[in-house]
């Protein structure tokens, strides 16, 4: 009993803050959560979630026997893994390189310019990319022709989808991603570098042994989140670059749900997929968290 009083006296302020924060989550996240029940019902909007008929796992069965789901799953994993391998490190590397520049107007200009594409919506980016790849007037094909090749119909090939996604993602988001790493890098005490320099460490060694470990917590957080969201392959981007010709590689889980849930009005089926994604993401998060804890980081939970 005494212990409880002591705890309350010490942490009362914290608990007040916690009350506000939890209040927000309970109201806006947990109260609407009954929507998950839609996955188990034959949902009719006018009857409401609770008034609609209970059908158990019928929708789950329909979804999992739909071959389009498995194609979408395969594509989603391919795209997500490719993103992790090729795109994840880029902001970090860019931030480190930028940090090496002398702090002056040039560096400031570079820093500002590289995040600009982040604000251009995917729709416009898609328009620009399509123009670039146009078989008759596109820059890329003009170069190919200049070197004696035949114009390629990039947009009509399914093999170009993944490279286009990865390149445009980096183009658009890498610059913006550097911001958070730059802030983290700036949080490292400069005395640590000086100490290492006195010990005779080269700049590269300083980076590897001081800077990166210092920002490792940020890196591991980003990595955990990326792993946990592996089933979301970037709907806003994919839907722009998806067309009739690359659908066998560009259909991802979210576009599969979109096709069902919106165009098909199969709200229950859409909720089913959403629910499965949630469960898997949580499991992945826990795993990633355990792994990161084993490697010495604090993890997320």
């Amino acid at each position: 009993m005494n212990k409880i009083i002591r705890v309350l006296k010490k942490y009362w302020f914290v608990y007040v803050l916690a009350a506000f924060v939890l209040g927000f989550y309970i109201l806006f996240c947990y109260v609407p959560m009954y929507g998950i029940l839609i996955a188990f019902k034959d949902y009719k909007p006018l009857l409401g979630v609770f008034g609609s008929k209970w059908v158990g796992f019928k929708h789950f069965y329909e979804i999992f026997t739909n071959r389009n789901l498995w194609i979408a799953l395969r594509n989603t994993l391919i795209i997500s893994f490719s993103r992790l391998v090729f795109c994840f490190c880029v902001p970090m590397v860019l931030a480190i390189m930028l940090n090496e520049m002398v702090n002056g107007p040039v560096r400031k200009i570079y820093q500002t310019l590289i995040y600009l594409p982040h604000f251009i919506s995917w729709v416009i980016m898609g328009g620009i990319v399509t123009m670039f790849l146009s078989p008759s007037t596109g820059l890329i094909n003009k170069l190919i022709e200049f070197f004696g090749g035949e114009p390629q119909y990039f947009v009509m090939k399914s093999s170009t989808f993944l490279p286009v996604i990865l390149i445009t993602d980096t183009w658009k988001n890498a610059g913006w991603g550097t911001i958070i790493y730059i802030a983290a890098i700036n949080g490292v005490n400069p005395e640590l570098y000086e100490a290492a320099e006195l010990d005779g460490a080269s700049r590269i060694r300083q980076i590897i042994h001081i800077m990166i470990p210092s920002i490792m917590s940020m890196i591991s957080l980003m990595l955990i989140l990326a792993v946990a969201s592996i089933l979301s392959a970037g709907f806003d981007q994919v839907i722009v670059f998806q067309n009739n010709y690359n659908r066998n590689v560009s259909a991802i889980i979210d576009t599969f749900v979109y096709d069902l849930g919106i165009k098909g009005a199969y709200k229950s089926e859409a909720t089913v997929v959403g629910l499965c994604k949630s469960i898997i993401s949580t499991i992945l998060l826990v795993i990633a968290d355990r792994v990161s804890k084993k490697m010495g980081q604090r993890g997320i939970i």
Binding site: Y25, M33, L285
Partner: peptide
């Protein structure tokens, strides 16, 4: 923290939010 993290992945969807 568990309460909070769970909300990152589980969501009731648009319709309950609209009603709320």
């Amino acid at each position: 923290s568990s309460i909070i993290i769970l909300t990152m992945f589980f969501s009731g969807g648009l319709i309950p939010m609209y009603i709320l």
